[in-house]
Structures are given as C-alpha cells and as structure tokens.
Nucleic acid binder design. Sequence first.
DNA 1: GCGACAG
DNA 2: ATCTTGTCGC
Length: 220
Amino acid sequence: MDYHDIDLFKASQAQVMIARKVKIQRLSREPRSVVGLDVSYRGETGFAAAVSINYKTLEIEEIGIAEGKVVFPYIPGYLAFREAPLMLKALMRLKGEKDLLVVNGHGIAHPRRCGIASYLGVIMGLPSIGVAKRLLAGSVVERNGKRLIVIDGIVAGVVLRLGKSDLYITIGHMVDIEDLEEIARRTTISGRSLPEPIYWADRISREKSLGRISSQRTLI
DNA sequence: GCGACAG
DNA sequence: ATCTTGTCGC
C-alpha cells in the first residue's frame, strides 16, 4: 500500500468523530497501574509493547507484545492509523487492570485534536496522556514559569524537562493539565529522561524488533 | 505557493 | 521510526 491507496479525507473525518468524544477532566482516582505503549520496526514489521507499571513502586507488572506487518505509511497527523492497531493488540494481551495509558505520541495537540494518545484513550474508554519528543501542532507559551502547549486557545499540554531533553506531555483523554505533570514527574526516575511506562515500552519493543527477547527473559 | 511535519 | 559515521564525556 502506498500513499495513494489511502483516503486521508475519510481518515480525517474519523479523527474528528473521535475528537468529539474526548473528555478533559481530572483523573477520577489515583491510578494503580499505568500502561506504556510504543512500537518499533524492522522493515515492514512492527513490534508493539504494552508495559504495565505499578504507579506506586514503578515496577513492571505485566508485558504485552504484538507484531505484524504494518502497511499504513507514516504521515504526520495520521500516526494512529499506522501504530494504534498493533498497540491495541499488545494492550489486549494484558490480563491485569489498566488505569491509565501513556502513549508515545501526542494527544489533543494535533491538527484535528486526535493524536494517537486521544485515539487510544477514547477507543479503550481509558484515561490517557501523550508523551512526545517533538511538537506536531500548536505552540508553546510561557505562563507562570511553565511552558504550556496551546492550540486553538486551549491548553493542551506542558513541556517538561525531566531528564536530558524536553518532552511534550499532552492531554489524551479523561485527564487534565494538572494530571500531566503529576503523572510525568511521579513516574520518572532520576537519571532517566522518560517516564517509566514509556521507557520500558520503548526499550522492550526495540529489543523485540532486534530479536533479543525470546519469551519470559528477565529485563532490567 | 511555502514551510512544517508525533513515530 | 531506522540507518550510519563520527565525536564527546564519564
């Protein structure tokens, strides 16, 4: 499949539909397990990892892996159509509870307010936040000493430097701005540049794509 | 038309 | 994201 086999207009409409269901509200309760999601590639094959982390201890509780051929190309603004299918497959393999999704990508700081974090949050009916290394849409404004990500006059996220480089943390679904910083700070161990859920999802999906994980091998 | 552009 | 050569610092 290449660029011309895709109906981006219909894809956009689907995103607008999902964006209307996004709820911005304080997390109803402190999460117990936070799930990090990411995808790595080896050629046309994608390897997704869903890693459940205990919010209090930051220990890995469960790992879900899924792999498959990825035909949808990477097009800025349409990342969910490329990566969400495998992420969902990996997520479904987790037996335990899932209180919050932390996705590698953006939430509502998106051209149609439907980045992959919001997309997954709405589909799963779970709170979600996006963690990205670069900005996709919107702008960063300084306010009360904080760098906020604003799009269409709405505060969609915050820029944090928890480690070596800036991270763009955005609202996915059923969380608010306060939750973003709370979750990001409390799940990031000193010495690391990413929140634990994303760090492990990123690492495990990459190790898997490199064929370094056979089954239940210990990871640390 | 031009530049920008998550992973 | 992935590939890939070179450089800097602990």
